[in-house]
Amino acid sequence: MSASQATLLMGILSLPALLLQDNLLGIACQVLYVIFLAIGRGRKFRILPNLILLISVSSAHLLQPNGLHLVSLGGFSVTLGALLLGARKALTLMGLLYLSHYMVSGRPEFPGKLGKLVAMQFYYFERITTGWRSIQPKRPFIGAIDRLMLLLEDSGSEPASISTKGSLRATTRVLITNAMHVLVLWSLFFAGYLGLLPAFG
């Protein structure tokens, strides 16, 4: 097993810990944790898209009142339960997103025919991006796309085989750190499940 596959496996083992989390504080901690994992792998964290997700999902849940009445906005009641439910859902989605970023950060190779095809797709993707720059596209785009496609086809393909076999020691280290991540995410789940974390609402 390569290091990138270990990372992938860690993510798969941790997914249920996020999905099953019922406690708001618990999911918030888990999200924070996976965001730091993703940032550690060079992923950028932008606050605005996440804020938009949080606000839109939370406010969408307000349409279904649930629990303590907080304020009325034009005959429309804002309830605590609905707000918390929306926030929890948005956080779960954010957590899944950043966990996913982390899982594929090592560019794992996928097995089988599909994996081979995707590798070929990425090979062409690289060539298109470099080719597009080299032809210095001018509008009309149709001509530019045409030239690019003809160029790619003429030159044929030689998919670079990427070998990602790291040393055994490196893989072991990655395995151990990933096992720790799984442990942290699952203990946060059990902390919420067993009522060790305070519940709101």
Binding site: G11, L96, L99, S100, M103, V104, F125
Partner: peptide, 20 residues
Amino acid sequence: AVLKVFGQGLVTGTIFSYII
């Protein structure tokens, strides 16, 4: 169609999230 979905998920890193 399959390759498009799969490749996009991998490039954007969203393949194991709700976005996929």
